[in-house]
Amino acid sequence: MTSSFEPDRRRVLLGAAGAALGAALPLSGARAQELATTAEAQPDAAESDRIAAEFLGGVAPLAEGLAMELPATADNPAAVPLRVHVTEALTEDLWCEELIILAELNPLPLACRYRFSAATGAADVALRLRLIRSMEVRALARLSDGRVLEARAAVEAGVGGCGM
């Protein structure tokens, strides 16, 4: 057996390669859960309600006509699938102008805003939300005839961060 192939002093550079790689990597995915965050859940729906009122502009929302698909339990709070769509047929004379999604207790409740046009012919979107805790998700859609449609659903999110 040849022992001369053994290095005399075997120093291991642990971490050096890792640190270099880390700098180049996006901070994302599961490991994000380990990073400290200043994100804080909203104490209540007040901020969400304020944004909703601004969107409504005094119009009373209708509880029919906007469908929301949201799982009752979020396996992964960092990517909760959500689909929202206007159920009635949209035409060149009737379209959805604007649609907002509110994650009521997230630090910034306005998750996103969509705008469509008379050319779109549909208002049917899906996306993935990251949720800081269990909460209600709310969607409001304004049609070109002035009506505002509303849908809500609650989602149970497991404990732990959501990468926010």
Binding site: G15, G18, L21, G22, L25, G29, A30, R31, E34
Partner: peptide, 16 residues
């Protein structure tokens, strides 16, 4: 899957 090392020396995984 991407990997890097955290400050605790443990390997971490990012999944896309």
């Amino acid at each position: 899957f991407l990997y890097d090392v955290g400050p605790d020396g443990l390997v971490r995984q990012t999944q896309i």
